[in-house]
Simulated scan of single mutants.
Amino acid sequence: MTSGEAPPRSLAKGRAALTNETPRYEAFARENTCDDWPGDGEEPPVLRTEVREEQVRSAINRVKSPDLPFDRSLNPYRGCEHGCIYCFARPTHAYLNLSPGLDFETKLIARPNIAEVLEQELRARRYKVAPLAIGSNTDPYQPIEKEYETMRDILQVLARFNHPVAIVTKGSLIERDIDILAPMAERGLVRVGVSVTSMDAKLSRLLEPRVPAPARRLKVIENLTDAGIPVRAMVSPMIPGLNDHEMEAILRACRSAGATAASWIMLRLPQEVSPLFKSWLEEHYPAKIEKVMGKLRDMHGGKEYSSSWHQRMRGEGPYAALLGARFRQACARLGLNEDAPDLRCDLFEVPLENGRQMALF
């Protein structure tokens, strides 16, 4: 976008993305057209969420990233109705010939048989137990989970096998599954990361239009903690010049709610996420775009994003170092810098299948 051009107008009320660009693997571009141009001040149309179902053949994804503390993950859904404009998972929608823009927020893929497939994989003789990460790509407790209950089915399988699991979410719907999570936590099988991006309700609504408000997420931390479920506060992403000044306030609020550990990640803008985020800045915070993007380029060798191992999560340079130091000092003051105990793998056991009897010998 050149200077002097008007920022793009949102195509859909209540969504974060302003555009729905053609997926990068498509041979032909698509454009929205309208014969009757709306007048000034007219509200954009309501864009409804569409869900289609996918029957999966495998459940567990193997992960080979040195930046991540796990080697396997599971995704109950593709796409995410939470619609966080900064979501680094948006480019994955292009593999479905869908746009990482509005399609990512509105055209979702449910995977209702994934718990059944997971059970089959856990029963395989060659399976070796290790903690399973859920929510590292799209949120397992996004709004459509209320209807599908896929995550609840998954947890029931994991509980029967005594399989360790680490969950990341922004959704309050996780409280529904406390009856499963609390007994698992007693056995050292589960921990939860709750992401809190900002304490500013207005900023949060613009960044994450369909995510529970910050105060509600703090209540989630409190309720999980009261049930004996360990919670890590995830102060992510930190956006230079937008929410970075809130780091200590977010950590204090999460600690007061009961969080016992914390982590942080810098804003990441891979592939299509960069133009989507810049358009969002032009629409909502045009005076800050140069500061935000300038800081990001400073941390990535002049580029808006670098995918290099050990750098992509935090960036490099003085600003990244300063933010890291602030995080460490705040965690030390608040008692959030202690390492959580490892999830237990020694309790894993394959239960009998329905209708099967134990062998005598």
Score class of each variant (00 low, 15 high):
M299D: 02
D346P: 06
L296I: 13
P318F: 00
M293E: 14
L322E: 15
C331D: 11
Y319D: 02
K303P: 00
H310S: 11
R328M: 08
K291S: 09
A320F: 05
E338W: 01
A332M: 05
K288A: 13
S308H: 12
R333C: 03
A332P: 03
W309Y: 12
K288D: 13
P341F: 02
A287Q: 15
G294S: 09
W309A: 14
L296Y: 04
E338P: 00
G335M: 07
L334C: 11
Y305W: 14
R297V: 05
R344D: 01
Q329T: 12
E316K: 13
S307V: 04
S308F: 10
A325V: 01
P341Q: 04
Y305C: 03
Y285V: 06
K291D: 10
G317S: 04
R314V: 12
E304D: 15
H300W: 09
A321T: 14
R328A: 13
M313S: 04
R326E: 10
H300P: 03
G302P: 07
N337P: 03
P286F: 06
R326Y: 04
A320V: 06
R297Q: 14
P318Q: 10
P318A: 13
C331G: 11
A340Q: 14
L336H: 07
R312E: 03
G315N: 06
A332F: 00
R314W: 09
A287Y: 06
G294A: 08
R297F: 07
L323H: 02
R326P: 02
L347W: 00
Y285R: 11
G315H: 04
L336K: 06
F327T: 08
D346G: 03
L343D: 05
Q311W: 03
D298M: 11
L322R: 13
S308K: 15
A320L: 04
G294L: 06
E316M: 11
D298T: 08
P286N: 10
C345R: 06
Y285G: 08
E316L: 11
L336A: 08
E304G: 11
D342I: 00
A330Q: 10
R333W: 02
R326M: 07
R297K: 15
C331F: 10
E304L: 15
R328F: 00
K295S: 12
S307N: 15
P286R: 07
V292M: 04
R328I: 01
A340K: 08
D342G: 10
C331V: 11
L336S: 07
G335H: 10
L323S: 03
L322K: 14
H310K: 12
A332N: 10
S306L: 13
M299C: 11
C331Y: 08
G315Q: 05
G302M: 09
A287S: 14
L336R: 05
R326F: 04
R333Q: 15
D339S: 13
S306N: 12
E316P: 01
P341I: 02
G335D: 09
R312L: 04
R333T: 13
G335V: 09
N337E: 13
A325E: 14
G335P: 10
D339P: 05
G315K: 05
G302R: 09
D339Y: 01
W309T: 09
D342H: 09
Q329I: 03
